[in-house]
Simulated scan of single mutants.
Amino acid sequence: MKKVFLSFAALAMVLVSCEQDQNDANLDITQEVQVDMSDFTLLVADDDIAGKSANAADKCHSMKNLEYRLQKNPGLQKKMYDIEYQTRKAIAMKNGNGKGKPGGGGGGGTPPPIYTGPVSIPVVVNIIETVDGNVTQAQIDSQIAILNQDFNNNNPRTSNVPSEFAGLVADTDITFTLANVVRKVDTRTSWGTNDAMKLSSQGGIDATDTSNFLNIWVCEIGGGILGYAQFPGGSATTDGVVIGTDFFGETAAGGIYGKGRTATHEVGHWLNLRHIWGDGRCRQDDFVADTPTSDAPNYNCPSYPTVNCQSNDMTMNYMDYVQDDCMYMFSNGQNDRMRALFVPGGAREGLVN
């Protein structure tokens, strides 16, 4: 009997020890995934710091479209907050520091890892044109080729990245394939930025299965606007990217914005990237650790170094506002943000599952 008692006592000590080890492990995991959301915002600075380029092009209306969508859908803010929270948790786990950017205070649980496999995104191009065939197949093919070039670090101008940023250039391993082209003739010359082109009820073209396809609408937006995108978390009905006809693919009509990089910029938004200056002054961030802080967009083709907020701007980043020939990189941190969307439960998981 004494032997049996001693055996049970020993077993109890082992179980208590294992339980303590498990509790310690859970504590470590909880500490690992804590993130700070105190800097998260969906607002643009009150002053119009974006302005326009030298040729009066209003490069991107993604944030203004977001303001419109937030007014229409009160639940959107919470949904985007949750996506951002999961993104920061995933990046914190990948980095192994539990802090993400910025670090401290948040929730527990084990975050999903950053998706590491190749990603292939099928694209449906919805064209609303004033004359049938105005947007040519060559134009469409050139746009798909440019997206593949840029997202796979094959832009020939990337060799111009300054040494300061050379180690940060990302190959996102994301490719795009043309799945379908849908055309409609409409004489409207200004569709605006309130998503009418995405709805057949308003004369546009309804989206194709936005869980599994990237939808791009090509039309006359008007107002000198090059394009805009919907961020992850918005309505499936309007999910996708809109590009002005003159700025889709390679087009002489687009001038300095006629080399297809508007789509690269807008697809970046669609994959959860913010403008590189964070749509605010020096204290407002783009939520990416390896992109320098800036206080406004850059236009045309700025020289290096261009200094703002006491650091050199990454003007050649696709998420700035420079002309097409002068943007030629995503950063590793931006790649992490995009890839966090593809994990199970992520906002774009349907594209890989």
Rank of each mutant, 00 (worst) to 15 (best):
N73T: 04
G109Q: 08
D46C: 01
I140H: 04
K99D: 02
N134L: 13
I146A: 04
T116G: 14
S53N: 13
T41Q: 09
G75K: 10
P113E: 15
V125M: 15
Y115I: 03
T136L: 04
A145W: 01
G100F: 12
E67P: 00
M80T: 04
R69A: 13
A90M: 05
Q86W: 14
L66T: 12
E129M: 05
D82W: 03
I91K: 01
K64V: 13
M63D: 15
V135S: 01
I146R: 14
A54C: 03
G75C: 00
I146S: 05
G133S: 06
L76H: 07
I128T: 14
A50H: 11
G108S: 11
I114M: 07
I127K: 02
E84H: 15
A57G: 00
A57K: 14
T87E: 10
K99C: 09
L147R: 10
G51L: 10
A57D: 15
G100E: 04
M93S: 07
I114Q: 12
H61E: 15
L43V: 06
Q149N: 06
Q86R: 07
N152A: 04
L42C: 06
L76W: 10
D141E: 10
S120L: 09
K52S: 13
H61M: 15
D39N: 09
V44M: 08
D47S: 15
V124G: 09
A90E: 01
S53P: 03
E84N: 09
D48L: 08
N134A: 13
Q77H: 05
L66W: 03
A57M: 13
A90N: 04
K52W: 00
A92D: 04
A54E: 14
R69Q: 14
Y81C: 00
D141S: 09
Y81Q: 03
V131Y: 11
Q86F: 12
A54R: 12
F40N: 05
D132V: 11
D47L: 12
P118W: 02
S38C: 01
I146C: 01
M93A: 14
V123N: 11
Y115R: 11
F40M: 11
Q77K: 12
I127L: 07
I146H: 10
Q77M: 02
N73I: 00
G106R: 04
A90F: 02
P112W: 10
V135K: 03
G108Y: 04
G133H: 05
S38N: 12
V123C: 08
A56H: 08
G104F: 05
S142K: 02
Q137R: 01
E129F: 08
Q143A: 11
P112M: 13
P102R: 12
T87F: 02
S120N: 15
V123S: 11
I114E: 11
A45H: 15
A92E: 03
K94T: 01
T41V: 08
V123M: 13
M37A: 01
K101I: 03
E129Q: 13
K89G: 14
N148L: 11
T136I: 09
R88N: 13
P122Q: 14
K72M: 08
V124R: 06
A57F: 12
E129K: 00
V125D: 07
G109E: 03
